[in-house]
């Protein structure tokens, strides 16, 4: 039995992790608009799909015995539920004409056109970029720094699980490159550093993690 102590109500939908997992299990039918129209719920559902797919892929390809124990799985699920929260709106740069040449926060917020991305969306980008690296599952994601200040450098902290015998340094580097590239492509953040910590190694045959 997996114990989830994360957000009971994902994105104000009225549905918690258990209910979202059940909704996913029954093929997302009958459709529930409060879930389907909610970005945070959809991020959780897609993360659940990806987590299941990646776990199965590792097990099938390398005969790795993933430590699918309560605490490991619950830890990732709770991290996902926490990270999908929308958080702050982070401004994309706007054309000077849209702010009358004023780059101050009030002018930007009052501009005829305002383009933003949520912190939750950014954490999700980090997660799928990291998960795209073979033999890697992202455990936790953190954005450190003032994301509301467009001039501030941000540090990204990513904790991953990796399958043995994948070369850990190479995998960590690959995660770093994938995350930095995805953030550069899709967000206005000035990423100073991407710190990758290998939190767990999944061992073959013997099972379990270290």
């Amino acid at each position: 039995m997996v114990t989830l102590d994360g957000e009971d109500d994902i994105g104000g939908s009225g549905f918690g992790l258990d209910e979202l997992a059940a909704y996913r299990d029954r093929g997302r039918t009958p459709a529930i608009p409060a879930i389907d129209d909610n970005a945070e719920c959809q991020a959780v559902l897609d993360s659940l799909e990806r987590l299941g797919d990646l776990s199965r892929e590792l097990v099938e390809r390398d005969a790795v015995s993933l430590p699918v124990d309560d605490s490991w799985l619950a830890g990732i699920l709770n991290a996902i539920a926490f990270e999908v929260r929308a958080g702050h709106d982070i401004e994309f740069p706007v054309e000077p004409a849209d702010t009358g040449g004023d780059s101050g926060a009030d002018a930007v917020a009052d501009a005829p056109t305002r383009l933003t991305i949520t912190e939750g969306a950014i954490r999700e980008i980090v997660r799928w970029a990291g998960d795209s690296v073979p033999d890697v599952l992202v455990g936790r994601v953190a954005l450190l720094g003032d994301t509301t200040d467009p001039t501030a450098e941000i540090t990204i902290e990513v904790t991953i699980s990796a399958a043995f015998p994948a070369p850990l340094a190479e995998r960590a580097d690959a995660v770093r490159v994938a995350v930095a590239g995805a953030l550069l492509a899709h967000t206005p953040l000035r990423v100073g550093r991407v710190d990758v910590t290998v939190g767990e190694i999944h061992l073959p045959s013997r099972g379990g993690s270290v």
């Binding site: 970005a39 501009a111 005829p112 056109t113 991305i117 949520t118 969306a121 799928w128």
Partner: peptide, 22 residues
Amino acid sequence: VRAELADHDRVRVHVRVSRVTE
């Protein structure tokens, strides 16, 4: 959105990217 609502003289549009998916 601005073009669609062009029948209104003054329109302020905020587009919030809530997800970026593959």
